[in-house]
């Protein structure tokens, strides 16, 4: 438990100190969402209709691209070797890093999502529900991306490889996240079923992600 706390605190500190990328994900999110109307046009009715989709896509890209350096820095400075030699199982260490990453990168996305929803003319009353779907769904994105981050560092490649590896795996999260958000917004379909499936996807990735990532690191880094 001490080791878990120590790692969590260290990673969060690193994220908010100079050189850390804590708010970079939120910034990227803001920029991606801003770019959409330039491509689609400023038609508020249209933006309101596709708003949840834009927000979900933005959050997906922001949380995946921010994962790029999650293991790379630890690998470059030798920390990863030592993380493997601790009493904490590697799966737990990896999960701890992911939690710290979500708290510093994923959570800000959820917090600014309502603001961006405002800019996309999404109905005010549904903003809370939309944020809720992101709150539940973004951990799944982080934990699925974790596998990609581990594979990328094992192959000593970063950047787009991560997105190429991981984006297809996030399809279910995107489908049910947007479905739940649209249900909350337009009420044409019930909110419960897609939201429950989203929760299930998150819970499953919380378990599977760290196991796969730890395996990738063990085999890749010999």
């Amino acid at each position: 438990m001490i080791a878990f706390n120590a790692l969590l605190v260290r990673d969060m500190r690193l994220a908010i100190r100079v050189g850390g990328g804590a708010l970079m994900g939120a910034l990227f999110f803001l920029i991606v969402v801003t770019m959409m109307p330039f491509a689609i046009g400023p038609d508020l009715a249209l933006l309101a209709r596709i708003g949840p989709a834009i927000l979900w896509l933005g959050a997906l890209l922001a949380s995946l691209l921010a994962l790029d350096r999650l293991f790379a820095t630890d690998h470059e400075d030798g920390s990863l070797d030592l993380l493997m030699m601790g009493a904490l199982p590697l799966e737990l260490s990896v999960a701890t890093k992911a939690i710290a990453h979500w708290l510093t990168t994923g959570l800000p996305l959820v917090v600014i999502a309502p603001l961006l929803g405002l800019m996309l003319n999404v109905e005010l009353h549904a903003m809370g529900w939309l944020a809720l779907t992101l709150l539940v769904g973004t951990p799944a994105l982080t934990f699925i991306g974790l596998v990609g981050a581990a594979l990328a560092v094992a192959l000593r490649r970063g950047g787009l490889l991560l997105a190429v590896l991981v984006l297809p795996l996030t399809v279910p999260v995107l489908i049910f996240g947007v479905a739940a958000a649209n249900a909350a917004l337009f009420g044409a379909t019930p909110f419960g079923p897609p939201f429950t499936i989203l929760c299930a996807l998150t819970l499953a990735s919380l378990v599977l992600g760290p196991i796969a990532a730890a395996a990738a690191l063990r085999h890749g880094l010999e």
Binding site: L30, T34, P37, P42, L44, L118, N121
Partner: peptide, 21 residues
């Protein structure tokens, strides 16, 4: 009647804010 309109002036200021960020 809405909080945000993609008005030319406001949008330019938004891009400026992004550059500041």
């Amino acid at each position: 009647g809405t909080y945000w309109v993609w008005d030319a002036r406001l949008t330019s200021m938004l891009v400026l804010l992004l550059l500041y960020f």
